[in-house]
Design a protein around this nucleic acid. Structure first.
Lengths: 229, 229
DNA sequence: CGGACGGTTGAGTCTCGTCAATAAGCGTGG
DNA sequence: CCACGCTTATTGACGAGACTCAACCGTCCG
């Protein structure tokens, strides 16, 4: 992939859209391709971190593992998203590990070039701040889920996410990755996840067909977590 | 409290230390005192948010509550710390509620003045980014705790936090607030928290005397979470 | 065909929360 | 000084939700 490609990819990132041509040009030589195969580890928990990452294609898993070896998915990063910005600013070891879920391509942008861009463009700093804020809110939402919601409510919340107006019926949700990963993301075992889906299916609220889940009655679904155990 | 006091308080905030005199002066008229009594609510979940807050004295509780009324403490903010920066950048409704744990004084800094400071000083933006990053890491750590650690491990983790070198024995931890709040922070019921402390006490690892908890053997304490159930 | 992988289902277990009763501290006021 | 209410903390009995372990099934792929 040539330098031109990196440049045009960066240009289309929401994060970098406000940058001038010269600022963008300054970023390009500090941006490196990282190709990886499924399962390959990008960095381990505890590694130093030299820059932030943008996902060109392929999905990335951020996860932690306990001393006993149990693994927990913190976040699944999709193409077009970025990660490791926060650790870059702190200069501390990574608190999570990052791994390719499938063959993919990342761009690593060196910290110093980001810092330079902040110094030259306030709008860029603003954008970065908004990006981090968004992630912060996502985590607050996660903490909320894990601590006050039960398995049923977490699954329902996942299925309804992004559905601001539960108007139109029969909306179909397609799971972006396999059920094991979704379960881990929701802090459930695959068994429990399967059982909850079955329970919703029995109640006539959804229809499950592999990774395709049809939401039959979204209003009742939204209420189901409170009424049923 | 006069304007001079606000100015000198801001000057001593880590966040604002790099600002020039004129930049600081620009902030002062956009900063407002917020006094409150114990139990008073600063903002509710869902409220719009016009700026960030600095705590002068008194402690603040950030919490969420489920539909059933159960409340969960997300964070306890101490004097000298700040909160609501993230929501300020997004311009979205607050995801949590904030409440005085005791009589206290806050300074609310209007968003527009912060934005202006970012535009004028890259170091300030950098500091804000680092601050948000730090909070992000704290939340990642929380998610980690809630999802892979059990009650015993969470309490041990809390007692040992900030103890990088478990060298000196008999270190005393004094709980900053009452046990109910600590329990909620750790996502435990007060009953479970009490029982875990008792368990550690029985094992001879700590001595509990009200809010004073003496760590008798920090090395064994650190291991206890893995060996005991 | 055989194995790997993802998913489902059942039975048993266990951690933790719920409910309830009982202290124990603490400021107030008689 | 003690009675009193109130908050905070402790302790016990019980139950429920979710995890563990295990078996089993379908599909894909070499």
């Amino acid at each position: 992939m040539s330098q031109i490609d990196i440049r045009s990819f960066l240009r289309h990132q929401p994060l970098f859209q406000e940058l001038s041509d010269s600022q963008l040009s300054a970023l390009v030589p500090c941006t490196h391709e990282v190709r990886g195969q499924k399962g390959q580890i990008i960095f381990q928990k505890g590694d130093p971190c030299e820059g932030m990452y943008l996902v060109v294609y392929g999905r990335i898993k951020l996860s932690i593992s306990s001393a006993q070896g149990a693994e927990k998915v913190i976040e699944i990063i999709h193409p077009g998203q970025s990660f490791a910005e926060a650790v870059m600013f702190l200069g501390k070891p990574c608190p999570v590990m990052a791994q390719f879920l499938e063959d993919g391509l990342l761009l690593q942008v060196e910290a110093r070039s980001i810092f330079a861009a902040i110094a030259r463009d306030a709008a860029f700093a603003h954008r970065l701040l908004a990006g981090l804020s968004l992630r912060l809110h996502g985590l607050v939402r996660d903490v909320e889920r894990y601590s006050v919601e039960n398995a049923l409510q977490r699954v329902i919340g996942y299925l309804l996410q992004g559905e601001d107006h539960p108007g139109q019926p029969n909306r179909v949700v397609t799971l972006p990755v396999n059920k094991n990963l979704i379960a881990s993301r929701l802090n459930l075992t695959p068994e429990t996840f399967s059982r909850v889906l079955h329970q919703l299916s029995d109640a006539g609220l959804v229809a499950v067909n592999g990774r395709e889940i049809t939401l039959i009655d979204m209003n009742r679904l939204a209420d189901f977590g409170s009424v049923a155990g």
